[in-house]
Design a protein around this nucleic acid. Structure first.
Length: 339
DNA sequence: AACAGTTTCAACCGCGTCCGG
DNA sequence: GCCGGACGCGGTTGAAACTGT
């Protein structure tokens, strides 16, 4: 006897959401707030299952979602966190509040894995100067290649010591590879039929952002349908510009990585209060599960005054706990920007 | 211009966990 | 403690977009 379907399959629509459906869903959530997904299809008349409604909301309609290119800073965070947490995309996403777990998962599978592979293939044999770095990456890549569904390796390190996360930090922690130049930007999908009607949704959401108590004033409106005003700024660039763009972007990436690194060093001199707080919170997280990340999220939100989440406390924790990872960070910065 | 191969990512599926009764 | 409903998560799929020939 199999598990019953989450919803009656008869009359349930599948596939891409239409703007009309989005409006209905957003309007309903605007009025009732997210949650009680089971009742959403019934109350809205949407021919969608509750899961589909929840997914659509959490991944695309929810305010505050940042879409488009990941910054090198975000890439670094994802790689660190993936190594530390495994494929716990929701947990990773909790440290990147503007990104959804689905987005991060997709980005990891389609971009970061390849970058790491490329990096690995560029060091077929362990170069003396980058032994720890390349071996860390090798392990990271192999783990994800050969055992994508098995998080035992990561969990071993994460859960082994619930009371003191500093003790069992992953000493094979992979590290941020040199940032890759951005891939050529696809044309804005606003040219598609579906996307062409998305401005209405955006306006709807924007107006909601202004009045909804559920939303935060600083968060960006979730710009669905890839109405890529901000996430694909260079979409209209001629492809002939790609070389120049890549050169400039490589410099930008490197500078970002440098600031990432400098932040880590700066934090060495900060007072220990934040660090203690962070360790306490992460101890709680690793001990009780990902749903207890609220404290961390609150902490992040409190400091979030820039485009990038102020995650240096986490970065600091990630790197401070191991001299290996510190060494690795140094190695990253010495690598040629070939990616 | 046309076609084939590749990549991307929105959405689905199934399982695990949580929680109230 | 047990049960069942609801939710959340991670893996996978497949259509659309992109790229190369």
């Amino acid at each position: 006897m199999g598990r019953p379907p989450c919803c009656d399959k008869d009359g349930i629509k599948k596939g891409p959401w239409t703007p009309e459906e989005d409006i209905i869903l957003v309007s309903y959530i605007q009025e009732h707030g997210p949650g009680n997904w089971r009742s959403v299809p019934t109350n809205t008349g949407l021919q969608r299952c509750s899961k589909s409604c929840r997914l659509r909301w959490t991944n695309y309609l929810r305010p505050g979602i940042k879409r488009g290119n990941f910054t090198p800073h975000e890439e670094g965070m994802i790689i660190h966190l993936q190594t530390l947490l495994g494929n716990k995309w929701a947990a990773i996403a909790s440290y990147l509040p503007q990104r959804t777990d689905n987005d991060i998962k997709n980005y990891w599978n389609t971009h970061l894995k390849k970058k790491l592979k490329r990096f690995q293939s560029s060091f077929p044999q362990e170069p003396p100067a980058t032994t720890s770095f390349s071996s860390s990456l090798t392990k990271c890549i192999n783990d994800n290649d050969n055992d994508d569904n098995n998080d035992n390796y990561h969990h071993h390190y994460i859960h082994k010591n619930d009371n003191n996360p500093s003790v069992d930090v992953d000493h094979n922690m992979a590290v941020t590879p040199p940032p890759a130049p951005p891939l050529p930007q696809p044309p804005s999908s606003s040219s598609t039929c579906y996307a062409s009607s998305t401005e209405n949704i955006s306006r709807l959401l924007e107006s909601w952002m202004k009045c909804s108590p559920l939303s935060k004033p600083k968060l960006e409106v979730g710009n669905n349908y890839h109405n890529d005003d901000d996430d694909n700024n260079n979409n209209n660039d001629n492809n002939n510009d790609d070389d120049n763009d890549n050169d400039n972007d490589e410099e930008d990436h490197f500078e970002t990585m440098l600031s990432f690194h400098n932040n880590l060093n700066d934090n060495d001199n900060d007072n220990d209060n934040d660090n203690d707080k962070v360790v306490d919170m992460i101890t709680t997280i690793t001990a009780t599960g990902e749903d207890s990340n609220e404290g961390v999220k609150d902490y992040i939100d409190d400091d979030d005054e820039g485009d990038n989440p102020p995650l240096t406390f986490l970065e600091k924790w990630l790197l401070d706990e191991s001299t290996t990872s510190r060494q690795v960070a140094q190695e990253i910065l010495q690598l040629p920007s070939i990616f």
